[in-house]
Design a binder for these strands. Structure first.
Lengths: 228, 228
DNA sequence: ACCCAGTTTGGAACAACGTTCCAAATGTGT
DNA sequence: ACACATTTGGAACGTTGTTCCAAACTGGGT
């Protein structure tokens, strides 16, 4: 009947959920999502695949845990906010933090929406929604506003994850954007006037700035709605 | 050296890319993404897995082709637009069409961003960006504006796809939202004041209306930015 | 120092998957 | 009718997530 406390020392290289998740993140960052297999994980930890299942329920839990960890780290750095200016700044900081985290760990973008309302998403939603008060967004509009912001971040995350995935095996970012811009320029200007016009912008744009412009757009919409 | 023209009749039940993609969509709608295997596809078409590879390069091409087909159908229904009011209406129509299509075929939401700038995405981006002119968005801001709108749609798509996936095996939508709302209400009000406050809204909200509110938010931001 | 109940380990085995291969069947042009 | 190209579909391959279980290890009671 003794509770299974783990206060003992054991060997220094003993398996644990934390060590497994850590190794998983290393593989994900280095090899991408497809590189994370239980065999590769077992090899990196110098053990067998079966041993891992005593600490982690399965691959999905592994990915969810890794994703949550990354998000927690982002939200920990965001200061409290009271005034509208601070609220807007905080939301921008959260968004930028998410962008940078996903830029560094693209697989997070791919797995964020896979499990709806997983722990990381819940924390993120609360963190955004809790700042809307200080922005002066009326209470009845806060749910939709927070959803819009979250969904926008989610969309950028998914897109960036996809871009990174194609880049794992092949070309770098510059090259990839250049090739896409070339393709847009070769489209018929009659059927695709817009893409033709913005092809050079695609070639030279900064992902982070563009992401921020989108956040500002939503925030501007929120500000406009208050006195409209 | 004769080109491989396919003008002959052959048997009525002959395999073709179109018939394969059509069967794939049927499986995806009925069984979800995990149900689409080459063996299930072969069984439905009363053939072998190997035969399919003579018409389709692989699973990824199959999903991309199915996704593109759905998007094309959405964009075909959107009328031309010249005035600002028509432009805004057209963008709303595109967004709503995408929402409805993804509601009917959730797997589209999951695969849209997987292949960056796949044909469907390109058509969608042009379709949105081409309407910004009539909305009065200055040319230098159109690239960012179209990206923001596309990313928002992408985020909702990914989220909805995830929700539908969990629902395939388990509960219905009402039940799922109710359970999530319950969980939010059980969170500590001190740490999660926002989620606590909006739990009842989550329980009774309409996904489509919420999606539209987000689109309006971005459009409002665009309108505000013009004279700002 | 010994032993024992419980946990941890890790390699083997399993079912399912995407994909490749190839011999047979089917079709087309002469 | 014949030769040739395409299409077919079943078998086979390598890899995956997961399960299983005998062996090794651990900490507490004698």
């Amino acid at each position: 009947m003794t509770p299974p406390r783990q206060r003992s020392v054991r060997r220094a290289d003993a398996l644990s959920t934390d060590r497994i998740v850590e190794a998983a993140i290393e593989i994900l960052d280095a090899e991408g999502e497809r590189g994370l297999t239980f065999r590769a994980l077992a090899a990196r930890l110098s053990t067998g695949a079966g041993a891992i299942y005593h600490h982690v329920a399965g691959k999905e839990e592994l990915l969810t845990e890794a994703t949550t960890g990354v998000i927690e780290r982002v939200l920990a750095d965001v200061p409290d906010s009271a005034t509208p200016e601070e609220g807007a700044r905080a939301i921008t900081l959260i968004a930028l933090g998410m962008f940078d985290a996903i830029d560094e760990h693209p697989w997070v973008g791919a797995h964020l929406p896979v499990v709806p309302w997983q722990p990381g998403m819940v924390r993120l939603f609360e963190s955004i929604g809790g700042r809307l008060d200080s922005l002066g967004v009326p209470e009845h509009a806060q749910f939709n506003a927070a959803s819009a912001l979250l969904n926008y971040i989610l969309g950028v995350a998914a897109q960036n994850a996809a871009n990174a995935r194609t880049r794992v095996a092949g070309t770098g970012r510059e090259e990839f954007m250049g090739e896409t811009a070339d393709r847009w320029e070769q489209l018929s200007p009659a059927s695709y006037p817009f893409l033709h016009r913005v092809a050079t912008q695609l070639r030279h744009h900064d992902d982070r700035e563009q992401f921020l412009a989108g956040v500002d757009l939503v925030l501007a919409g929120l500000a406009a709605g208050q006195d409209g």
